[in-house]
Nucleic acid binder design. Structure first.
Lengths: 108, 108
DNA sequence: TAATTATAACACCTTTTGGTTTCATTTCAA
DNA sequence: TTGAAATGAAACCAAAAGGTGTTATAATTA
């Protein structure tokens, strides 16, 4: 991969990376274990892990010949903060029903 | 742009698109007005708007020769929901049990 | 020691992204 | 009614993203 500074928003944009994060929730796993859950190559997984690492969402620790990855959810705070701003623009009663009702009020 | 189904996570990954969303918070603006806030070309802005539109984050309405864009924050609920799962890892309180930590099929 | 396991480091490839320029069409307004 | 304003649409481009395979190195284990 080319870019060296990955943003947390970019990091979570990829579905595979979101899956990796979920896999690391609650348990720490080595690369091989993570890779075995995907169809893509280990090299590809490692690249995703590097992006997550650059975004601060995971850390790693070498244990013997393994490299264990840990979830670090702290950078997600930024996303939460960002979302907080937009909450004032949605109607909680409607969004509670999640995608069931599509409103079409156009307020100028 | 090639892809036709933009995910909300992908849509908000780009800083320019996040700025566009912020510009549309509270007021509806035509393309020309949005473009004037950026250095990039109108065409580039339109492409960002299409991506936001495909993600359901904006809608547009034609008024005369203008095309006014409106913020539709509802899809952001998916992001909030997703974040909710990770909050239990930075707090100690359990937020939701909607996403259950996947119990591994492989025992070490 | 030798074979195996886990990872690292490259080189390389294809598609997508984010941008450009150019030209056409529609609408408003003097 | 004619020109400016606002948008649409197409062709094109460089770089980044996401993937591959190969080879090398370090740690384990039979």
């Amino acid at each position: 991969m080319a870019a060296e500074n990955y943003d947390v928003f970019q990091a979570i944009a990829d579905p595979t990376r979101r899956q990796v994060l979920q896999m690391l929730a609650g348990r720490n796993l080595p690369i091989s274990k993570i890779t075995s859950h995907f169809q893509i190559s280990r090299t590809a997984v490692v690249k995703h892990l590097r992006i997550l690492s650059e975004a601060g969402l995971v850390t790693s620790e070498k244990i013997g010949r393994e490299k264990r990855y840990h979830l670090k959810p702290e950078p997600l705070f930024e996303v939460k903060d960002w979302l907080g701003f937009y909450e004032q623009f949605w109607d909680n009663k409607l969004t509670r029903l999640k995608y069931v009702v599509e409103t079409e009020e156009e307020t100028d």
